[in-house]
Design a protein around this nucleic acid. Structure first.
Lengths: 164, 164
DNA sequence: ACAAAGATGTAGCCTTGGCTTCATTTCACT
DNA sequence: AGTGAAATGAAGCCAAGGCTACATCTTTGT
């Protein structure tokens, strides 16, 4: 074994002197930690999108079919099927061969959370003057990265400023 | 060839009756299109993160080293190296073996755009009452999904409401 | 000058999210 | 009831972003 423990020599970058220089946390990795969180959110994005969509489809038709899911998301059906398999592994949905997809309790709970968040983000964007169509697109990406604190701020804003 | 052209029978879901039912566009795929855009943004996220970070590091030390990049992002060095290789392929950076990484003009331009956007998003979040540390984390994810229109709205808001 | 430490490179593996192609099952309709 | 279209499944490919392990180059320090 050669390089195991992290050492530092040379012009080791302080890591606080970078990018988020407004923070004073002296621990190496304040930066890194932030990005880690973002990475986690990133991997949850797709799960959330599928879950939300499946909830919508179930509400509309009582079931969500792979083909519909795929069409709504703009992907091919094998892609949707693979994602559903993953959702199943994670315990968010159930499905039987050649049958539709259904949310489990956990899945329904997640869908509800996601839907609420989604709605708030869209309303908020419109409230600050973003055109509805653009708000719809942006919200699709933004929603996955909005923390509870930020969501609360969005919500407060919408409530306190009905028109802008 | 069997299933080639898309046909529809049975209970084909209208695709507008779902999720974003606020739009009236009758073309199949209004939904899908929105998600496609989000997917594009998703794949650009990492490029933007790296580019921005490299700009910061270059500003601080005149060069960006793989190890520093990796540490700041909280990934291992081979991961950073692979990403840099991709950035290089895309013409955003240059590098020579065992030497640092440098932004090309295109890379510097992207970094500048990203930095401006990043700053606006953070200022905006703080302006609506999100605590600074949380704003920093959320901005890291949100920034990649903010359209020009939304960014303008953010910017306007910050200017018109210095304190909240 | 040289040895050790640190930085970089290389190879290979995993997972995920895309895709195409082809096989199989269901379903709607005559 | 039977058939053909549509839906689902299964296999296999690719790129990207992670990782570990190991090899090699540079730099530091004595």
């Amino acid at each position: 074994m050669k390089n195991k423990a992290p050492r530092k020599k040379r012009a080791a970058v302080p890591a606080e002197a970078v990018a988020g220089a407004e923070q004073s946390a002296p621990d190496l990795g304040a930066e890194a930690h932030r990005f880690s969180q973002t990475r986690s959110a990133r991997s949850a994005e797709i799960l959330e999108d599928y879950t939300e969509l499946i909830a919508d489809l179930m509400e509309e038709h009582g079931e969500a079919r792979i083909t519909d899911i795929a069409r709504c998301l703009g992907v091919t059906h094998p892609t949707a099927a693979k994602a559903v398999a993953r959702l199943k592994r994670e315990g968010l949905v159930t499905s039987r061969p050649y049958r539709g997809v259904f949310l489990t309790e956990a899945g329904a709970a997640m869908a509800e959370r996601v839907r609420v968040r989604h709605r708030i983000v869209i309303e908020f964007l419109k409230a600050i003057g973003v055109p509805a169509e653009i708000a719809a697109v942006d919200a699709e990406g933004i929603e996955h990265y909005v923390s509870d604190a930020t969501l609360a701020a969005f919500s407060d804003f919408v409530r306190s400023a009905p028109e802008v």
